[in-house]
Amino acid sequence: MSITLKNVSYRYSTGTAEEIEALKNITLTIEDGQFIGLAGHTGSGKSTLIQHLNGLLRPTEGQVLHNGQDIFEKGFDLRTYRTKVGLVFQYPEYQLFETTVLEDACFGPLNQGKTKEEAREMAKRALRSVSVPEELFERSPFELSGGQQRRVAIAGVLAMEPEVLVLDEPTAGLDPCGRTEILDLVKSLQEERKITVVLVSHSMEDIADYVQRLVVMKEGEVFLDDEPKKVFSHFEELEEIGLSAPQVTYLMQDLSAQGFGVPTDCITVEEAKEAILKAVGKC
């Protein structure tokens, strides 16, 4: 299932002096099965953009199309659609409310109209897939650690078995170890379930090795939209808008400038290591 934004503009507080144009004429297609990164400086419109993907915000101008159909057309079942496009907000653990972990994860499926039994099955599957240990299922979500709470909250969205998963800064406030865990988890979900993933982050370094396509936003517009390697080759422009390429990119640029024959499009440490070894071996 593909989602297309067609000439979407969005303005906050329209008709007042504080009118802000958060999105400016954005056209973007999210293809089936892609793993997309959405990066941009604070206030560049990332969060506003993703709220259009599942129809929580209605564009001031333009259309949001789901398989070619306008989702704001009369008669379109927006509620069912929202359960197909799972949106995990920033700090999702703040939305937990049920008495037990399992019941909280059931909330989505129950809203989809599943029976209690089905909902519990779906919730259990989701909780297992984010490696929440079975013995926590009957505990109160408020007793868990922050990292566990976040997993439970993500499971709450996954339980609806969405076809598209959108995550807004899922690693915010986690330690480096927790960050990698969450990102690895999202990657494996994307590969196993063949779902489309949109990952929002202000740190491109974090998501560089995970995504296939990187969309960079600047002041409400799409600034770059390409493979990570190609995006990072514009590292000077990225710096101007307050973003930076992975550190290895800079290293490789410097080495290349010093006359070492290394490629400059490495984005992970692993790749860089291989490339340097190869270059040194040749010397």
């Binding site: 709220q51 599942n54 929580l56 509620r79 069912t80 929202r82 359960t83 799972g86 949106l87 995990v88 907000f89 999702p92 703040y94 939305q95 937990l96 409310f97 909330f107 989505g108 809203n111 989809q112 709450g156 969205v157 609806m160």
Partner: peptide, 29 residues
């Protein structure tokens, strides 16, 4: 509210009792 709507919550339809109950996922958090 948005987060719960993204999980398919419905605050608008149903009778008074159902609507009151649908407030729980907002009020607790």
């Amino acid at each position: 509210m948005k987060a719960q709507m993204a999980r398919g919550a419905d605050f608008e339809s149903g009778n008074f009792w159902r609507r009151a109950k649908s407030m729980v996922p907002i009020l607790v958090p």
